[in-house]
């Protein structure tokens, strides 16, 4: 497997260091050749930087990609936004040699060159495609049989598809496959592919951000799912923090929000404390309680005992 740099992004390192922790735990568990490299900046955030100045958006992303190009590493990120933004710019520059030359002229001043050779992947499709469902299954210590998980892909894990090219942009399956590999049921529901709406919080429209969060959370409450699982710090902010804010105002929806790396970490035998699940705003105890009950009930297969038993002929 090719070595890869992890692009942590601003949101995880600023607001949710425990998500970095659980990501490192699962990367270590699979002995993956990941690197921390110096020199990254904000990806940059599209809804902010691209809206203000497209050229700044392009050169900032191109410089970040140049860092991994130079080292001949690939790049993996546990943030959907970061990967989507970097890939969008990579796609724009690789299909436009004139613009690429303009950008490289600017980067030359600091000794960098954007080549666009590094593969840029989000952590979920990376685990699906590069680590593989089979390898994951082999390592599971305690699966999630009997658990009902609602998945939230996060728009930028899969779109824009021309830049990311990792799954179907309307009806993706890879995250679902991983949930199935962990033994849980990925519940299908009408708002599954709906955007979280966190973007509204970044443009001073907090009430509307809550309105969008409410649509999905109410549906999940009615469906009595055990958790909402996602892998994007922005979606996490929307469903964990904003759900907590609604709770404080007396609107309790009670949907535990679990990051993919935390779910995987639990299956590999790590504790909720180690993984930082206890640092969430919305209480995850009901999810963990249900999980304990499920594994208590699961009848152990007697297959191996039968096979190893004496008495053939």
């Amino acid at each position: 497997m090719k070595e890869f740099a992890v692009f942590w992004g601003c949101t995880i390192q600023t607001r949710f260091p425990f998500l970095e922790k659980s990501t490192r735990i699962v990367l270590d568990e699979f002995n993956l050749p990941y690197k921390d490299i110096d020199g990254f900046t904000c990806c940059p955030e599209k809804s902010l930087v691209n809206n203000v100045d497209h050229a700044s958006f392009v050169v900032t992303a191109a410089r970040n990609v140049a860092l991994v190009d130079e080292l001949d590493y690939d790049l993996v990120s546990p943030c959907t936004g970061c990967v989507s933004n970097l890939a969008t710019v990579k796609g724009e520059l690789c299909s436009n040699p004139k613009e690429k030359a303009e950008v490289n002229e600017l980067l030359k001043g600091v000794g960098r060159e954007f080549k666009g050779t590094a593969k840029l992947q989000h952590l979920v499709p990376f685990f699906h495609d590069t680590v593989g469902v089979f390898a994951i299954k082999q390592k599971i210590k305690k699966d999630f049989a009997g658990m009902r998980i609602a998945l939230h892909y996060g728009c930028h894990m899969i779109r824009p598809s021309h830049a990311l090219r990792n799954d179907d942009p309307i009806a993706p399956v890879k995250f679902d496959n991983l949930i199935a590999a962990l033994g849980a049921v990925s519940v299908q529901f009408p708002t599954k592919m709906m955007c979280c709406g966190q973007g509204l919080d970044r443009v001073d429209q907090h009430d509307l951000a809550l309105q969008l969060a409410r649509v999905k959370l109410k549906e999940l409450k009615a469906l009595e799912v055990d958790a909402l699982v996602l892998c994007c710090p922005s979606c996490f902010l929307q469903f964990d923090n904003n759900q907590y804010l609604m709770e404080k105002e007396g609107e309790k929806l009670g949907v535990p929000v679990i990051y993919f790396t935390e779910l995987l970490g639990l299956a590999l035998g790590h504790t909720p404390e180690e993984l930082g699940i206890t640092a969430h705003r919305v209480d995850c105890a009901p999810f963990l309680k249900k999980w304990a009950e499920c594994s208590g009930q699961a009848a152990a297969s007697t297959m191996d005992d039968e096979l190893n038993a004496q008495g053939a002929l």
Partner: peptide, 25 residues
């Protein structure tokens, strides 16, 4: 700063995370 926030150092310590990489800001 070239970023939208700085790494939360006390929390990193609590979770036993390594020193954050140098920024390219």
């Amino acid at each position: 700063t070239g970023k939208l926030g700085e790494p939360a150092l006390p929390a990193r310590k609590k979770f036993g995370l390594p020193e954050p990489s140098k920024s390219g800001g």
